[in-house]
Amino acid sequence: MRRALLAITGLAASTTALVAFKGAPNASPVAQDLPAGQATATPGGAAPGGTSGPAPSAGPAGSPTARASATASPTPGARTSTSSGGTSTAAPRTTTTAPRTTAAAPTATTRKVTGPVISNEYGNVQVQITLSGTKIVNAVALELPDGGQSSLRSDKVDAAYSGTSGQVVQRQSANLDTVSGATYTSNSYKQSLQAAIDQAR
């Protein structure tokens, strides 16, 4: 259970990164301050080849951002929410008025869009987003490789090697501030989420 929590928190963090990311087509990195009170952000090592573009000078002007609403958490720290008039220098966050989506704007109907199942070495990942109008208000993973192949593999290893030199590698995680070594699943999560966002347009 703890593992699942850890995974979800990590994924939640990368979701915010990603959704914000989505808004800037020029692949310029998007800044977002999280209030420190929030759950630990385990940075999933994200996609290879995702963002190595010529980032820094990219003019953020006018890139609409789906960001703010994607964090499911209430953001108490005033500076984080751009809508509240605090002038922030991290430009891409400013919610420019017109999202580039269609005319179906103001009616705030809630709908859900489900991304495709993306497979990786460890199993399947599927993401579903909830939209209120054109805003993403939630993103959940319908399927994550919890247990699955990876545990099977690990259990086999445990069974085969207990008692020999070196201790058998075990799972351990409690109250971590961060994690060394990148994660694999986040890439699949990103792809499924991306597809869900594309479908929602």
Partner: peptide, 27 residues
Amino acid sequence: MTAPPARPGLRRVEQIMGTAISLDLAD
């Protein structure tokens, strides 16, 4: 996910160098 009470500091994540970079300032 319920957010614990606010504590000092700031966190930010950005996608740079093809990966996620996160900063946790605890001061």
